[in-house]
Amino acid sequence: MKRKTALYGLLVALAFIFSYIEVLVPIPVGIPGVKLGLANGVTLVTLYLLRPVDAAAIACLRILLAGFTFGSPVSMLYSLCGGLLSLLVMWLCRRSHRFSVVGVSVAGGVAHNVGQLLLAAALLSASVVWYAPVLLLTGTLTGALIGLLCRSLLPRLEKMR
């Protein structure tokens, strides 16, 4: 129990710091919403190490913390929409046993962008659909990168469980 509490705290802190890093160092591609998704990587690792409900709890805590510290209510809403849809899709993909960590991560990255795009379409206007092709492709790319990272991380982290 103590061990699990410590692991929980560690993962939340890590996700929080990753969110901060991505606010500090945005990817200069000129498209709003494109980022590497390091914090989402923590969610992915949690999904593999602990239960899905733990991953959801850590994702929500991270989003709340990051939102209150260096975000706004609107950015928090975007993060929640993307993060939770991403988690849901990654969980389903993992359960299907058809994909490796990389595939699950790609699905998560794409779902994250789709979630944010849907919210943007609801809040702003339907014309944000123009961003959809680009966001699908960047979601695939960043998801694959995070997936590769997690693939080499997971065997090392297994011991921490």
Binding site: C93, S96, H97, R98, F99, S100, V102, G103, V106, A107, V110, A132, P133, V134, L136, L137, G139, T140, A144
Partner: peptide
């Protein structure tokens, strides 16, 4: 077979995007 799923997924997303 697991890797196959990945490839189909990525190809599918790219196809939808295009």
């Amino acid at each position: 077979s697991r890797k196959n799923g990945d490839v189909w997924l990525i190809a599918g997303v790219v196809a939808v995007a295009l």
